[in-house]
Amino acid sequence: MSKLSNLTRGILRENPVLVLVLGTCPTLAISTQASNAVGMGLAATFVLICSNAVISALRNIIPDKVRIPCYIVLIAGFVTVVQMVLEAYAHSLFEALGIYLPLIVVNCIILGRAEMFANKNRVIDSALDGLGMGIGFTLTLLVMASIREVLGSGTWFGIAIPWLSDNGISVLTMAPGGFIVFGCLIALVNKILGRKQSPENESYCAGCPSADTCGRFGKEVR
């Protein structure tokens, strides 16, 4: 696998949000304004690159049984760094992201990539994977936020758009709009990639570190 494909894979073919369906919570919550979306995307990208690189470097040291707690602590450390930097140098963004900033810790994209990629690959590849996934996440957030901001409040990055700003569909900036835009975007990506999402093969669980437990449970109930 070439270096380039490690980087580009995250952008569409294995887009973390739209194809792997990880990190749904921040995607839905932060995508009301394009500027916040970019801020969130960059914060998560930084954490992804750092955590992927460090976890990959420590992959032979961390015992397999306690790897998830170790990953979480490492990730939480990097999130704290981002929190402190943003609080000091970009206070308005820090306020806008609010509770979703510390919640990057439990963003399944980061833990998911650690589990799916970083603990099996070399440091450089893992860092590139983190960068690619981060770009994919940021772009998706930006696209979603643009749709919601332009149609919902008639602005883009805070700049008013002539006719639309008087005729905003305000429900798009609220919670239901998040769900509906996200649903339509996933459907669009399914159409482009010619992929059918069968209800039996829930692809949005595959990346979750708890998939084993969940899957085992799923069988018990059926």
Binding site: L188, N190, S203
Partner: peptide, 16 residues
């Protein structure tokens, strides 16, 4: 519709 099967239709019902 085919592209909406699975997760997308679930999200749209969540929206409602």
């Amino acid at each position: 519709p085919k592209p909406f099967e699975g997760l997308p239709i679930t999200l749209i019902s969540a929206s409602i």
